[in-house]
């Protein structure tokens, strides 16, 4: 897992490109990108939601699952390889699971609405949209908690800080020697 993370990221991006190509080749739908509102100029309407998803619904669902996987893998890439231990990967895996649940809830509640034509509301929005507005915002909170709470454990440990300070000190010595050499050359 540790050494192959960039290969996993590469594989996910290839799959995303493949899904995009498949969507581009799918049978076109007239209102896929919206249609002018029948009564109000300057406003777009969505029209028949089921028709828009008929040929690409599952592909779009897969696209977002891959994208969420990519997000979590990229965040893991930002952590030093030796700190990506079992515990860290469990946290990252759980974060991905949480993001996927939010996405699945949003998508399936939208599907339910398309089938039934009715929806409940949560904090001002239809349920599916509430999952989007509140759920998507909250779904990355585990990643932020891992970063902020786990900062000294995964991101920048005391040992890392010491190493970096050592690097800075080395660099200063080199720069000082260079400036001394320059000064002696000019004399």
């Amino acid at each position: 897992m540790r050494s192959s993370l960039i290969l996993i990221i590469f594989a996910i991006v290839i799959l995303i490109a493949g899904v995009l190509i498949a969507i581009s080749l799918a049978q076109p739908v007239a209102n896929s990108g919206g249609i002018p509102h029948p009564d109000i100029s300057g406003m777009q309407a969505g029209g028949d939601g089921a028709a828009r998803l008929e040929y690409i619904g599952s592909l779009a669902f897969a696209f977002q699952c891959l994208l969420l996987g990519l997000v979590v893998c990229l965040c893991a890439l930002g952590v030093s390889a030796r700190r990506r231990g079992r515990e860290f990967m469990i946290y990252m895996g759980s974060s991905l699971g949480f993001m996927l649940i939010v996405w699945w809830q949003m998508y399936s509640r939208h599907q339910e609405f398309l089938e039934s034509g009715s929806t409940a509301y949560f904090m001002g929005f239809p349920i599916a949209t509430a999952w989007q507005v509140y759920g998507t915002w909250l779904s990355a909170i585990p990643l932020i908690l891992i970063y902020s709470i786990g900062f000294r454990k995964y991101i920048y440990t005391r040992e890392d800080e010491e190493k970096f300070n050592h690097l800075l000190a080395e660099r200063k010595v080199v720069e000082q020697k260079l400036s001394e050499n320059k000064a002696s050359e000019s004399q």
Partner: peptide, 26 residues
């Protein structure tokens, strides 16, 4: 409140207030 505003939009064009809006899922 906001629920009334979103229900007005829903009655006019449900997709506009659903998660992918008028511009669509992609």
């Amino acid at each position: 409140g906001m629920a009334e505003a979103t229900s007005i939009i829903l009655a006019d064009d449900s997709e506009a207030i659903m998660p992918f809006g008028a511009a669509g899922i992609m």
